[in-house]
Design a protein around this nucleic acid. Structure first.
Length: 335
DNA sequence: TTAGGAATAT
DNA sequence: AATATTCCTA
């Protein structure tokens, strides 16, 4: 019953998106905006990458999606819109070359998987330390911002509150589709009891004494704690795109790649929410990599090099022992 | 100055 | 409804 802790990691891994789920959007990785921004030919370039393996769901309504996937209105025309903007903003020179600044990232969609990670993070951090930043760090999802988490956290708290109220009253709790997401992940018992510390935390003392430590170190600590907890719980088998990653990567290899991550997206409904409806984005395949470094400024000026080369860089298998498995995906752009 | 959190806005 | 953004506070 309480094995949820020991199994945590294992389960977590299980939850990780399968390669198939990650592949489908290879080209879409480059948002129109980015494409434009970097002056690279639109991804829809003859690449018949119809990599939508298992969709086995009655949702074949999906239109032929001619070239690129349908982006949210805001994004869809963003190309054009953006062009206009760029021209406006100025730079007076190369038309459509400096738009990076007006780029907005797509709305994050909290898929059950993502939410799971969120809950896990919160659960293992403890209510006290479960603040947006730390949660975000623990989740280590590439592209996830503190704001994303903060927003979600706010809502989650509301949900918890409501749960508590209902728990004693009785009732019905299933009407609102609202709760569907939250319901997808079991709410750790102690979430409802803001008083006592989860007994399951026995092995995690002051888990992540987060302070002035670097994020990486925090995570390392977290990982260490987890590892210490179940030393034997080594990654079973990587039947997924899971790679043992270096957690204690000292100085980050230093990735100069811009944190451009407008690559959410893909009308693939994970059997969840209204997918293609709004053309939202589905980060179910968010790249999970080491915590992004802060120092990395938003790309102010695309250094035009390998703008959007590939984000797949993390498949570094470190030792299978002290390392934590971090997955990463993002198909390499088969250019 | 950075964050967290509630209040708003989209 | 679900996220994002703003605003205020610590």
């Amino acid at each position: 019953m309480r094995e949820d802790d020991s199994d945590w990691f294992a389960r977590w891994e299980e939850e990780l998106p399968s390669p198939e789920e990650l592949m489908p959007i290879s080209q879409s990785l480059i948002s129109p905006d980015l494409a434009l921004a970097f002056d690279i030919r639109t991804p829809n370039h003859g690449n018949g990458n119809s990599n939508q393996p298992h969709h086995h769901h009655h949702h074949q309504t999906t239109p032929p999606t001619p070239s690129q996937l349908q982006l949210p209105s805001s994004q869809a025309n963003s190309s054009a819109e953006f062009a206009a903007d760029s021209a406006d903003l100025g730079s007076g020179g190369a038309a459509g070359d400096e738009p990076a600044r007006t780029l907005k990232r797509p709305r994050l969609v909290w898929t059950p998987q993502l939410h799971k990670r969120f809950v896990d993070a919160v659960a293992h951090l403890g209510i006290k330390n479960a603040v947006p930043k730390t949660i975000m760090q623990l989740m280590s999802v590439d592209g996830l911002t503190r704001e994303n988490v903060a927003s979600h956290l706010q809502k989650y708290r509301l949900y918890l509150k409501r749960m508590q109220g209902l728990s004693s009253g009785g009732g019905a709790g299933s009407d609102p589709a609202t709760d569907r997401l939250f319901a997808s992940s079991p709410v750790p018992a102690h979430f409802l009891h803001p008083n006592r510390v989860p007994s399951s935390d026995h092995f995690m003392p002051s888990f992540v004494p987060i302070a002035t430590l670097q994020q990486q170190q925090q995570m390392a600590a977290a990982a260490a704690a987890a590892a210490a907890a179940n030393p034997h719980l080594q990654p079973p088998q990587f039947h997924r795109q899971i790679a043992a990653a270096h957690f204690g990567s000292p100085t980050n290899g230093g990735f100069s790649s811009p944190t451009s991550n407008g690559q959410f997206g893909s009308p693939t409904s994970n059997g969840f929410g209204s997918p293609t409806t709004n053309g939202k984005f589905d980060p179910s395949f968010l790249a999970v990599r080491q915590t992004q470094q802060q120092p990395i400024q938003r790309m102010s000026t695309p250094s035009l090099h390998s703008p959007v080369s590939n984000y797949v860089e993390d498949l570094e298998s470190a030792n299978a022992n002290g390392g934590r498995t971090v997955l990463t995906l993002f198909p390499t752009r088969d250019d």
